[in-house]
Design a protein around this nucleic acid. Structure first.
Lengths: 233, 233
DNA sequence: CGAAAGTGAGAGCAGTGCTCTCGATTGCGA
DNA sequence: TCGCAATCGAGAGCACTGCTCTCACTTTCG
């Protein structure tokens, strides 16, 4: 990012960032439904119509926030995974660290988590700019399996998938840079990711209320099951 | 439901039902965000303020729809499970039937599914009237495990849970009428339910797009994994 | 029969997303 | 350096929302 040339461009970039910051702030304490363009503008001391020079619609603003949130979550997971690795942890330890980081992020950023994995608000749309950052989240976990495989720590077993699943596994492999991994290994890692996601999603939507309520113990147990599913333990 | 006494009571019950029907219709093609009290009233030929005689707020209307949706989903799962059982299916077959029924319901009722398992919109609320019907959904699956256990089809193995998990498992047991089941069996069934939910949720929120896109094959595979997790296969 | 409760209509408040017009400012090419 | 064009903020306005309050009318029940 080079120094912005004209004063206008600099001002525009700054204001765009300020708008996103204020929007993130409102998102954090009112949720996506409560995010109001007018309120953002008000808080920034400008009039609402001026905001449309920067974001053509409320949905575009939300999309920008979604991309940022995916990246923030991706960074969090990468950091957790990397630091577990740096301190001599096994692939299983990395998975544990990343899994707990995911749960923790969801709990500390509920509205952003909801933005990513909650209701796809309007009529089913998946803006193209979101799919790459979105992939970083499962990626953080699949990459652990990849590294374990390359280190020879991962057994190849389990039923051979059929053709459909094989080609879909290959699609995942190319999208997430998992070349060389056998399809079975990929699919088992996906299975484990699915389990992890399910646990977090159930807790998040309150389905554990009154039963598994402080879900710490169950989550820890679920992570161990994920490790067995993925072949990491 | 006895014949309603006064004409007023009858009219009230009918109108309440009509409001919910119209609201459900709007929900089905606009989503929860698009549900407008005024539009419902307009469609019913009444004025918006009159609607508040029947539902004190938009949220109350939504809560009523949520309860109905939980029950509709619960009925669907029960039916699938029961008919698999009636045609001589094993517990595993019942789980398969119910699991596919769950996915199918989610796909055919996306907005209602989103209402149940999507963003908990405002600031974390779980109206008490929803928690019993909500329990029917995991219940439909845990009851399959319970029946299999009583039929002696379910092995008891796996690591013994610690105290926290034991008592939480017992809470689930009393809430869902699973008396007699060992905690390990309950927890393994919960694990399987978590996996199932995760698979549906990931597909639903579009996380499989461009990778596991027609998710039929992967879902079938995931169900088999659930059966092994629960000990049903 | 008459009071009390229930009901619908209408106006109104405060808020929303978004559009359009109108000056003012800025930037770039001639 | 000057002038035109692009960009920008402000303001008014449209069509909508949830919700409240008042007022008249009807039903119910003591």
């Amino acid at each position: 990012m080079p120094a912005h040339r004209t004063a206008r461009e600099r001002a525009r970039a700054e204001l765009t960032a300020e708008i996103k910051d204020e929007a993130r702030r409102q998102l954090a304490d009112s949720g996506a439904n409560g995010l109001s363009l007018r309120a953002v503008a008000r808080e920034l001391g400008m009039v609402s119509s001026a905001l449309y020079r920067y974001f053509p619609s409320r949905d575009e603003l939300l999309t920008a926030l979604i991309v940022d949130a995916y990246n923030a979550l991706g960074d969090t997971l990468d950091t957790a995974s990397a630091s577990a690795s740096a301190s001599g942890g096994s692939p299983a330890d990395r998975w544990r660290a990343a899994a707990h980081a995911l749960r923790s992020w969801a709990r500390t950023h509920p509205h952003e988590y909801a933005l990513l994995y909650g209701t796809p608000v309007p009529g089913y749309r998946a803006p193209d700019d979101t799919i790459v950052p979105a992939g970083r989240v499962p990626g953080a976990f699949l990459w652990i399996a990849r590294d374990a495989w390359h280190a020879g720590d991962l057994p190849v077993n389990g039923a051979e998938p059929d053709d459909t699943l094989r080609t879909q596994a290959r699609t995942i492999a190319t999208a997430l840079d998992l070349s060389g991994l056998p399809e079975v290994v990929i699919l088992r890692a996906v299975d484990a990711w699915t389990q992890l996601f399910g646990t977090v999603a159930l807790e998040f939507t309150g389905q554990f209320a009154n039963t598994l309520d402080p879900a710490d113990a169950y989550f820890a147990r679920a992570v161990e099951l994920q490790l067995r599913t993925a072949g990491l333990a």
